[in-house]
Computed example of a mutant assay.
Amino acid sequence: MGDSINQRVKQIRKALELSQRNFSSILALSNGYIGGVESGIRRVNGRLIKLIVSEFGVNETWLTLGKGEMFTQNPDEKFTKLVGLFKELPPKYQDVVYQMIDVLLKVKE
Rank of each mutant, 00 (worst) to 15 (best):
G40N: 09
G46A: 11
L29Y: 11
R43D: 15
R42T: 06
G32P: 08
T64P: 00
S39E: 09
G40I: 09
G66W: 03
V53W: 08
G40C: 07
L65M: 11
V44G: 03
S39N: 14
E60M: 05
I26E: 02
R42L: 07
L51K: 13
K50H: 11
E60V: 10
V53Q: 06
I41A: 05
S39C: 13
L51F: 02
S25M: 14
G36R: 07
V58Q: 00
S54H: 08
N45G: 15
I49F: 04
I49G: 03
T61L: 06
S24W: 15
W62N: 06
F56P: 06
E38N: 12
G36L: 06
F23C: 13
I41K: 10
L48F: 04
I26S: 07
R43H: 07
I41N: 05
E69D: 15
G32D: 13
L29Q: 12
I26P: 00
S24T: 13
G66Q: 06
R47N: 12
N31S: 10
G35N: 14
E60L: 03
N31T: 09
L27H: 11
R42M: 07
I26D: 01
S25W: 08
R43N: 14
S54L: 06
V37N: 04
R42H: 14
G32V: 05
F56M: 08
T61F: 01
V58W: 00
V37D: 02
I34P: 00
F56T: 10
G35Y: 03
G40M: 07
S30K: 11
R47Q: 08
G46Y: 03
S39W: 02
L27G: 10
N59G: 12
A28N: 15
R42I: 02
L27Y: 03
R43P: 00
E38G: 12
I41W: 04
K50N: 03
N45Y: 08
T61W: 01
V53K: 08
I34W: 02
E69K: 15
A28I: 10
A28S: 15
N45E: 10
L29N: 01
V58M: 00
L29M: 15
S24R: 10
G32R: 11
G57W: 09
G36V: 10
E55H: 14
R42D: 10
N45T: 11
G46V: 03
T61I: 08
L51I: 05
L63P: 13
I49Y: 01
S25N: 15
K50R: 13
W62M: 05
S39Y: 04
T61Y: 01
L48W: 01
R47A: 11
L48I: 07
K50G: 02
L65W: 05
F23T: 01
L63W: 10
S24K: 13
Y33P: 05
A28D: 13
A28V: 11
L51A: 09
E60Y: 05
E69G: 09
G57N: 12
N45K: 06
L65G: 01
E38I: 10
E38M: 12
T61D: 01
V44N: 04
V58E: 00
L63V: 12
L48V: 10
I34A: 03
E69N: 13
I52P: 00
W62V: 07
V37W: 01
G35V: 03
L29W: 10
N31K: 14
F23E: 12
R43C: 09
E38Y: 11
V53A: 05
L63C: 11
V37H: 02
L63F: 12
T64K: 05
I26G: 01
L29G: 02
E60R: 07
I52Y: 00
R47C: 01
